[in-house]
Simulated assay, not measured.
Amino acid sequence: MHNEHDGTESVSPEVNQIGRAVMDAAFAAHRELGPGLLESVYEHCLAQDLVRAGLQVDRQVAVPVTYRDERIDAGFRLDLLVERQVVVEIKSIDALASIHTAQLLTYLRFSQVRLGYLINFNTGRLRDGFRRLVL
């Protein structure tokens, strides 16, 4: 079972700082680009801004699933993995649904990362498409 939190509890100050950098970069990208673009555009721009901020960013990171001691490449790919400590899942859709939250929680569990952001850039106000999850 997981504990899902929207606050800053349960992760280190260092991880929270990385999370704040992700949030700042996402809001800046949304201000400049606006809604309506492809997810890949937002992914590229967000990754570029985070790298410029001095953070290590890996894109489209494969995450294997382990089932009964067998490693399975099920095609899971993290959009962004920042400093190997924060998962960022990017969407550009009409509205986030519970399945998107479940997807991010699955990514967190299998990647053994505790903090994740689900960001839907296809909104008038980015805060309406922003979810922070702690596993």
Rank of each mutant, 00 (worst) to 15 (best):
Q103N: 04
H30I: 11
T106L: 01
R68M: 02
Y42H: 13
M23T: 12
V63Y: 02
A25D: 02
V57L: 08
G34A: 09
T106A: 05
E83K: 10
Q60K: 11
M23I: 14
L115E: 07
T106P: 01
I72R: 12
P35V: 00
Y107N: 05
R52L: 15
P64V: 12
D73R: 03
D94T: 09
R52E: 15
V41M: 03
V86I: 09
L33K: 02
D49A: 01
A53I: 06
D24V: 12
T101F: 06
E43A: 02
R52H: 15
R68H: 10
Q17R: 08
F76G: 00
S40Y: 03
A53P: 07
I99N: 07
L37Y: 15
Q112I: 04
E43Y: 01
Q17N: 02
P35Q: 07
G19E: 04
R20F: 05
Y42W: 02
R59L: 08
Y117R: 06
L104D: 02
H100D: 10
Y117L: 11
D94N: 10
F110G: 01
L33M: 11
L105H: 02
M23P: 04
Y42F: 09
Y117P: 10
I99L: 10
G36T: 14
L81E: 09
V51R: 06
I72S: 06
S40A: 11
E83D: 12
V82G: 01
Q103P: 03
G19D: 03
I99H: 12
D79T: 08
A29W: 06
G34R: 06
G75L: 04
L33T: 05
K91A: 01
A74I: 15
Q17E: 05
V22R: 07
Y67F: 14
V87Y: 09
Q48S: 11
D73V: 03
L104V: 05
V86R: 07
A25R: 09
F27Y: 15
A62D: 11
Q85N: 13
I18E: 04
A29G: 01
F110L: 14
P64Q: 12
S98W: 00
V51T: 06
A102M: 00
V88I: 06
L50A: 04
G34C: 06
Q60L: 08
V41Y: 03
H44M: 14
T66I: 12
E32D: 08
G36R: 13
L81F: 13
Q103K: 07
Y42V: 03
